[in-house]
Amino acid sequence: HSLENRWALWFFKNDSSQAWQDNLHLIIKFDTVEDFWAVYGHIQLASKLSSGCDYALFKDGIRPMWEDSRNKRGGRWLVSLAKHQRHSKLDRLWLETLLCLIGESFEEHSQEVCGAVVNIRTKGDKISVWTREAENQASVLHIGHVYKQHLGLSTKAIIGYQAHADTATKSTRNKFVV
């Protein structure tokens, strides 16, 4: 079953003796449902990775970094997890995120999606969905609402969208919330 897009799975392992980009590795690309599950079944669950590691799933041709021309005007919907949620929630939420991407759950707004990242960190893990244009408010909000629903988050929970340009300057201001 062909997917709408070809996707690339990336792995980041923190090694401070190397430049950031040298720690980022392309694992594999796939463009069918069956190949997605084959890949998913052969990699470690996110919860088993060491702190400092990331997985990123991006559309083929988009590198998982702010500097990429298809990311630099964009931003991310960010889900921050408490430390104790690594074992109870992280793997489920990351899988739901992957299924939203490959299944094109955001319908016509899916073209705004660049990819998603899971960051494994001692202080609390994070999952984010990256979109290409932070000023496309209608698409950003549609994606945020649908994403929150697919994650099964409570209506009381709030997730924020941050423009990469703000994150790059260390501002953590939410441009939108749902």
Binding site: L3, E4, E104, H150
Partner: peptide, 18 residues
Amino acid sequence: GTRIIYDRKFLMECRNSP
């Protein structure tokens, strides 16, 4: 053009099919 959309249920069934 048409977009290939798969819902969660379909994707999960593909995981479990032989």
